[in-house]
Nucleic acid binder design. Structure first.
Lengths: 166, 166
DNA sequence: GTTTTACTTGTTATATCATAACAAAATTCT
DNA sequence: AGAATTTTGTTATGATATAACAAGTAAAAC
């Protein structure tokens, strides 16, 4: 079962996701001589504990509650570090941050964002990626990063809205 | 020659683009009983006059110079209207706004954004669109909007950087 | 053609997102 | 231990965007 499908079900133990993500983070940072300090680690955990993308100031508030410094640079530094390490993604259309489910493999974060419940699924389609590279190259463009954010109605909310209108 | 290719060349008369865009805007608004008021029209023109995406406050400054009201709601209202009418796009990863080259046909704005010169090309690939719809549907997700923003190096800047390093 | 209605704009205030700049502390290297 | 590097604290400010309500303007109904 893929991680993103997993997230579609309500009963999974999300703690497993968090644990896995944190372990991966530790490993990656160790390998690259990066320091996963307390704030950074806790920030990553808090982002994962939220099932949906977390705003910088929401995260800052949570960190502040736990005794971390409560000024904006604290959270933006942690976010910059985590983004740089590929441990989280920024959802540009929401100004919010999301744990990356595939931090171990270099990849592009493609997102399905539900307009209704604001849950986000990450998906990873090699064929689309390949097609985009090819099409960009066709115009002489060398692709470096992709922001792919699709919004609409997720399966659960679609069911609900059908039920409501019936 | 497609509009986006056109934009890759430095010598084209961009006024033609603006004129066409404005005419299209007039027609579309008339058809839909929408009012393309002075601020809205001028905002659209100014967005087009800039070859690259324009920030809301940059636009506001230009409008203010011309005697329009200089408070933020003025520009955000105009932008909302133009976005709603499909006459412009928002580039989420830049918080900036861009004239839509295909306002007359319903479409998704896919962008190639150059990291170097910040020029943006719009492109419109039906096959990618179809693939995304299909893949979303496969997860029970009903697609409503797509944000596709690809960044990298455009042809011109790639040439330049090769020249520089040689 | 005036009244009613809907829409658009003006105005003030504030919310939200993000970074600059410099000082202090902690960690790592030698 | 001392020097170099990185990380964190702190203050201030910049950049992006919206809420709320009043005033004006155009369109529709009568």
């Amino acid at each position: 079962m893929k991680h993103e499908d997993f997230h579609q079900h309500s009963h999974h133990n999300h703690n497993d996701c968090i644990d896995t993500a944190l372990e991966t983070a530790e490993t990656l940072c160790a390998e690259q001589g990066q320091r996963l300090t307390k704030v950074r680690r806790r920030a990553l955990e808090l982002i994962w504990e939220s099932h949906r993308p977390l705003g910088a100031y929401q995260l800052l508030a949570k960190l502040a509650e736990e005794g971390f410094n409560s000024a904006p640079p604290t959270v933006y530094r942690a976010l910059d570090f985590l983004l740089g390490a590929g441990l989280i993604h920024k959802v540009e259309s929401m100004n919010a941050y999301l744990g990356c489910a595939h931090a171990d493999k270099a990849h592009k974060g493609y997102f399905l964002i539900c307009d209704e419940c604001h849950n986000v699924m990450e998906f990873d389609y090699q064929d689309i990626h390949a097609a985009l590279i090819e099409k960009a190259a066709h115009q002489g463009f060398e692709l470096r990063a992709e922001t792919i954010e699709l919004t609409g109605l997720c399966a659960k909310c679609k069911e609900k809205s059908v039920g409501a209108s019936a």
